[in-house]
């Protein structure tokens, strides 16, 4: 099970702040593709992915138990 946290626009599009994927292992690139297919998210291409609260690269592998966050372009400050 991989928990995926959603924020801002993405959270509103899906209608919840987290989704759970029943997957054992997946790359960052693949999970973006899967979320895009499943939820038709508008900003997935320009979003970054954080795994366990650290930015991850496209080829990094996510495993069951990891917490994933989809990070659309930030606008703090």
């Amino acid at each position: 099970m991989i928990e995926v946290l959603l924020f801002a626009q993405l959270q509103e599009e899906v209608g919840k702040d987290k989704v759970r994927l029943d997957i054992k292992e997946i790359t960052v690139k693949e999970i973006k593709h899967q979320l895009q297919t499943q939820f038709d998210l508008s900003q997935i291409e320009e979003s970054l992915v954080a795994v366990n609260e650290a930015y991850a690269l496209e080829d990094d592998v996510i495993r069951s138990g990891d917490t994933v966050a989809i990070i659309p372009p930030v606008s703090g400050g």
Partner: peptide, 27 residues
């Protein structure tokens, strides 16, 4: 510090206008 906040810190701003709203990205 403020330049880096706008680059790497996962915080998002939603502007509420008189006639609408939007999440702002990539300021």
């Amino acid at each position: 510090a403020i330049e880096r906040i706008k680059q790497i810190v996962p915080i998002w701003k939603k502007e509420q206008w008189e006639n609408g709203e939007a999440w702002i990205g990539d300021q």
